[in-house]
Design a protein around this nucleic acid. Structure first.
Length: 355
DNA sequence: CTGTGAAA
DNA sequence: TTTCACAGG
């Protein structure tokens, strides 16, 4: 099934622990965060499922797990005074096509295993493979955008990678931080990354039926670079050496060795040659995507008044959500907007920064 | 993942 | 008030 999907997740191992600051949600009040929408929607899609792994669906068989997650979590964030903006992926860079194909293949295999598990009545297995096979359709993405519009929550269409756009917005100060589970946004130059932005803080341990507590985690790029004693460009070099969504890494090179190499030789091409890599082009091309990603200034972040009727229409009428539940949630949303979101649109951060 | 109502 | 199990669509 191809190469081990190390990806940027391996970056985790060289993030200095001192650079991870845990926050309660309350500490993030008044902050704005640009969230990677696909990242979030996939999480919901994978997590919100019945015992046998089936996602939630309306009476017409359309998947609604992503809407449920998006709706309730966003309201929770707004209730905490956190201004969430979502960033949707645009056209993936050409270099990503191999990675995308690989993922599709994995999902198709997982789907086969899921169906097999269902036939055998293996519920636990079925659930696992159902999660792995989760895929977002175009319609699901459109519905998510419609729901956000109705909720008055801004979303941005990235020209290409959502992570890159979110990072750019954080760089410009349009938002306080970018939010994602991945570390890619640090490579894209986000000065501040927030991970684990959830309400319950419950995270299932892989395989087990146990849960551990997870708090939102803030990582600043400056801290990471200072502690490692490198530049952002060198951090990117490390990433492309171990492998990213846009290139395969060098066999036998992990995060630790990559860090050492980068500090020793400085220049990426020299490092690659010292490792016996003949074709350096794919590495340089991947690096270029992180250094100069395609982003846009064509966005406006406005948290408008939610439209209860539209929300009701989408969730209750169109997708069979429980009327009482939705009405209660809408009330929470309206209250949060009035009391925590409506004013201070520019954010208090700006105000205090200018002391 | 999150809301909910029952149990602790 | 907090914890828990379970359903949600």
């Amino acid at each position: 099934m191809g190469k081990n999907p190390l990806g940027v997740s391996a970056l985790r191992e060289i993030i200095p622990p001192q650079c991870k600051r845990e926050h309660s949600l309350r500490a993030l009040s008044g902050k704005s965060i640009a969230l990677d929408a696909y990242n979030s929607l996939y999480q919901f899609l994978a997590a919100i499922r019945g015992e046998d792994g089936r996602p939630l669906m309306d009476s017409k068989g359309r998947v609604t797990s992503h809407l449920s997650g998006l709706f309730y979590r966003t309201i929770n964030m707004l209730e905490h005074g956190i201004r969430i903006a979502y960033v949707f992926d645009g056209k993936p860079p050409r270099l990503k096509s191999r990675e995308i194909e690989r993922r599709i293949e994995i999902k198709e295999k997982a789907k086969e295993k899921y169906e097999e598990a269902i036939r055998k009545g293996e519920v636990e297995e079925a659930r696992k493979y159902a999660q792995m096979s989760a895929r977002l359709s175009k319609e699901m993405v459109e519905e998510a955008k419609k729901l956000l519009d109705a909720m008055g929550v801004p979303w941005v269409q990235a020209p290409s990678e959502g992570e890159a756009q979110a990072a750019y917005m954080a760089q410009k100060g349009s938002v306080w931080a970018s939010g994602s589970q991945d570390y890619d946004s640090l490579l894209f130059g986000s000065p501040r990354l927030v991970r684990n932005l959830t309400i319950t803080g419950r995270r299932k341990l892989p395989g087990k039926r146990e849960y551990i507590v997870i708090e939102p985690e803030e990582i600043t790029l400056q801290c990471v670079l200072e502690k490692l004693g490198i530049t952002r460009e060198q951090l990117i070099d490390i990433a492309v050496l171990i492998g990213t969504d846009f290139n395969e890494g060098v066999k036998g090179v992990g995060p630790k060795r990559a860090l050492h190499l980068v500090k020793t030789y400085k220049d990426l091409e020299r490092i690659l040659r010292s490792l016996g890599v003949r074709d350096v082009e794919p590495f340089l091309a991947a690096k270029e995507i992180f250094l100069h990603p395609e982003v846009t200034d064509n966005y406006k972040l406005e948290w408008r008044e939610p439209d209860p009727q539209k929300i009701y229409e989408i969730l209750v009428v169109e997708h069979d959500f429980n009327e009482e539940r939705v009405k209660r949630a809408i009330e929470r949303l309206m209250k949060a907007w009035r009391e925590k979101i409506r004013y201070r649109q520019v954010g208090l951060d700006m105000f205090f920064k200018k002391r």
